[in-house]
Design a protein around this nucleic acid. Sequence first.
DNA 1: AAACGGCTGGCAACCCTTTGCCAGCGCCGA
DNA 2: TCGGCGCTGGCAAAGGGTTGCCAGCCGTTT
Lengths: 357, 357
Amino acid sequence: MAVESSGALAPPVPAARRSPPTISDVADRCGVAVSTVSRALTRPGRVSEATRLRVVAAAEALGYQANPRARSLLSGRTDTIALLVPDITNPFFFGVVRGTQRQSAAAGYAQLLVDTQESVEVEARELARLPKSVDGLVLAASRLSDDELVEVAATVPLVTLNRDVPSVPGVVIDTTSGMVQVVEHLASLGHRHLAFAAGPVTSWSGARRWRAVRAAARRLGLTATRLGPFAPTVESGAAAADATLNTGATAVVAFNDVLAIGVLKRLRERGVGVPQEVSVVGCDDIFGADFCHPSLTTLTAPVESAGRVATDMLLDQLGRGTGRGVPRAQEVLPTHLTVRESTGPAPARAARPRSRS
Amino acid sequence: MAVESSGALAPPVPAARRSPPTISDVADRCGVAVSTVSRALTRPGRVSEATRLRVVAAAEALGYQANPRARSLLSGRTDTIALLVPDITNPFFFGVVRGTQRQSAAAGYAQLLVDTQESVEVEARELARLPKSVDGLVLAASRLSDDELVEVAATVPLVTLNRDVPSVPGVVIDTTSGMVQVVEHLASLGHRHLAFAAGPVTSWSGARRWRAVRAAARRLGLTATRLGPFAPTVESGAAAADATLNTGATAVVAFNDVLAIGVLKRLRERGVGVPQEVSVVGCDDIFGADFCHPSLTTLTAPVESAGRVATDMLLDQLGRGTGRGVPRAQEVLPTHLTVRESTGPAPARAARPRSRS
DNA sequence: AAACGGCTGGCAACCCTTTGCCAGCGCCGA
DNA sequence: TCGGCGCTGGCAAAGGGTTGCCAGCCGTTT
């Protein structure tokens, strides 16, 4: 016992804790077989009420709790799901974590959180390892190829988030049609030249956003220039802002809010008026988008809902769903444009490329 | 075998996946005993090199991976640690999650993330349940009593974060002495009346912050009024702001940044100039504190470091530490005041209580 | 040539729980 | 009174891997 200081020399390992009571301790204590204890605790009608009470009392007295590892060895179930995100630093994923956490907890599942560090290798390694430890996976913004994902999905229940792979259940936030709203908003404000500050090249949703912006711009007769790629961090926003100014665009649409906030910061440092000289639009509506300065016009994404829905879909696959309705294979969540202070009318004369101050 | 569709009726469960190869499959394939396979894969010197190579080749060919559940049943180890936070919604804990996640991943541990929802009951329930599933726990901002924590720590390796319990290893962020800096900063700006917007009553660190503010204010001859408690959310900031204005204080120190940002928001809505009429100070320096408007003067807490250090201390207890230096029992991390735009000289005439516009 | 010892690999117990199968018992009806 | 049946509880296997102990083999030493 490590609690009492035995005087001489303390063991290197702090505490040698007594092992918790097992099912056979309970069985011994009330003179029945272990199988009876197991049934008394898990199969209500299977043993007599008298026996059940004795067993329950003994279990209570000993503080017995079934060892979930032993249980899962036989049942194959761990009551745990894993959430993989590319970058836990990104506030977008905080929302996802919240949504999945709340929903899985409500269903009695624990959640393993894994950061794949934007790395294809780490992601692949974890996907190979995790199925042994969890019942299912929610895979947010995967960097893997469609084929790889199909293969994984054949091994373990899997739901993707913001990644649409045919035949793999998933939920995507529909930023594509949202981007159309963004471009229309900017067009109606008189902007003719847009810049798009792209995110990581491996980002599936990033690619979709750019395509949507480009298509909408073309349709409305605007020009759109793609810049980047930029890391989705506040720091990278500086580079994105500078690149934007070089293009002479009067409005910049950023891959996401983190980048957009970085752009705002840099523009302020350079003395460029937002939205007087340049309008800035983000994507996601993360924590902070409403209280940054100027507050950010952005495409509001139901991030937490997406996490919840993805978890629901996974629980459906695990046979633990809410039971209402048929299991969903693909889910698309709508976005809406939230106009705040960072967008405004295009300057009377189109901005010209500015050299760095 | 469920893989072949037996024609008649499809199983209700979507995909019955073939069970992964076991150690005995590998043993059969290369004609050795399972014990030899086990040793070949885990005890480098215990079998001949020739045998080892044959086993490794067979395992490779079959795609064999040891079942961690079976392994943990005997070894007792799960290579998983749990992080319990009161509210996953709070950006402060994002930093903690980041720190623990990165550090545990680096040591080969998976991380279970548990949200106790600011509830003593949920926290107690999880603490009773989790030790069976994980090797150790990092417990952030626990709401439990000292005695309860000591009891839990006797059962399972445990490190607290922002909660100092004698005899339980922990890391605390030293906001106490930081609060002295805050009060001195405000005093030097000429403020005479402070308000403190308190957080949840069960928050240990919140209580310490208030005591530090009160003591420092008394020493410097200022008055300090405690307001609240307020929930640590942006929304609650409105109530905190209103309460502050009622007191006539010229500066408000908020329990944390989330609350402070809410205060800023409300003051702007009410047309109260910050810092011209009221100065606002937060605590933690969360994501957003630097780009809110006005940017927030706050006590910068090394949140991510705290998560890392706590995880290190836990790994030490698990005998998996980095090995450098002695295991630490208690760690105190310093904070520093980051002055931004939300604090300024006290108004010439002390503000008087304002009625709601 | 015999004894000894080191290296290698197999046997079987063990970790803890669940569950299929079976046996004993008591009760009921015939 | 006896057969049958339902209820209850026990035995043992299973789940996948680890490890203490032992045996066989081969090489070395006396």
